[in-house]
Nucleic acid binder design. Structure first.
Lengths: 208, 208
DNA sequence: GTGTGTGAAGTGGTTCACAGCG
DNA sequence: CGCTGTGAACCACTTCACACAC
């Protein structure tokens, strides 16, 4: 089943919201209510959910637990993806402690850095290797996903090194640059400075 | 002039790229070349740049320095926006040390947290106040932009407190939730776990 | 009556294709 | 001849509007 990217992003948010509502004991929720809580139009919510067949009850709404489990199934990976984090600076360290990575579907198996002071130690219980070791460590541990939190200048070089392993399928890039990869690798970028600049640009527009 | 959001995001990237090319001594660049370096189609690049009038030379390309200055003008804020960072956890601390915020157009004037151990101290030379003080500190210092790096559960409450000041125009939200704000405030969200889930979802698709 | 499911219409952004200038 | 600038065609996503199930 082909699902558009913005739809997937919303599914993740429905999933999170439903988990919260479930924990709060709510049994049923309407498209209207979900829309208000997530800043989406109700019609958008219904369209997204209708991709998976009739799952709501007309005149009533959606059963919170059932809908949660349904979306959970759609989003769940077939197995845990093994990941490595490259770049143990401020941001890399922050992500290691970040809630999302506590989730068992993300397993960070190795860290890489080019700083000898960090190599050989463990952070959050995960061993740090020199970036030069990456291809062999990636193969040994079966790593398929890279989280890249290195400075802009280093990003392309790090990607080149890890792709030598031939095992990498996806990259989440936090460096403020575009990287060039073989087309077997899927890249998503989180570019903090682009988001900030966008915000500032529209603030400027509004104040004119 | 109205510019679409994806266009602004690309402008920021052209800006960054041109700065780099300029520093490397390159004088001229074609839409094709910029497209390859940033993973955009050449026609997209030309369309984006054509919004500002004829700025390239046919048969030649764009003059790197001139184009850089032109985009710089478009993106530059009329004055420095004063900002505050709310939430001095891993991520907040990481952002404080992040390169983008070294840029003088972003001036972080205050920090807020609810941890008494942090209140009263300074981080990166910036004083940390208790979140309860936010409305008065925001007014005193003329702060208009908030960077929100608190846990999901705290996000809405923090936003409510800072908006009491009546001075906030924009928020960059890093918490993994949607927040509800008065419509005088513009919000951009960087939702790391949504990006990660999206990546994993498409990895799953590809492997079928 | 109430809230879903969905074709159809609308909107916004991207890509094409080529005329035109250097 | 090369590369820009741009209308027109295209495509993707969102919103509307209403029939229909509960």
């Amino acid at each position: 089943m082909k699902i558009a990217e913005p739809t997937v992003a919303r599914l993740v948010q429905y999933h999170r919201l439903l988990e919260r509502l479930y924990n709060e004991g709510q049994k049923v929720v309407s498209s209207q209510e979900m829309g208000e809580l997530l800043n989406f139009k109700a019609s958008q919510v219904r369209k997204d959910l209708s991709y998976f067949g009739e799952i709501g009850k007309r005149g009533v709404g959606y059963h919170v637990e059932r809908l949660f489990k349904h979306i959970d199934e759609i989003l769940s990976p077939p197995r845990q993806w093994k990941m490595a984090l490259v770049g143990l600076g401020h941001l890399g360290t922050a992500l290691l402690g970040y809630g999302a990575f506590k989730n068992t579907k993300f397993g960070i198996q190795a860290l890489f850095d080019n700083d000898q002071a960090k190599v050989g130690k463990a952070y959050a219980g995960i061993p740090c290797h020199h970036i030069k070791e990456a291809p062999s460590v990636i193969r040994d541990k079966g790593i398929e996903v890279i989280i890249l939190t290195v400075p802009a200048e280093a990003a392309q070089n790090c990607i080149d090194i890890v792709s030598q392993s031939g095992r990498i399928k996806g990259v989440l890039n936090f460096s403020p640059v575009s990287i060039v990869v073989p087309d077997t690798i899927r890249v998503y970028s989180v570019d903090i400075s682009v988001e900030l600049e966008k915000l500032l640009f529209y603030l400027k527009q509004n104040s004119k």
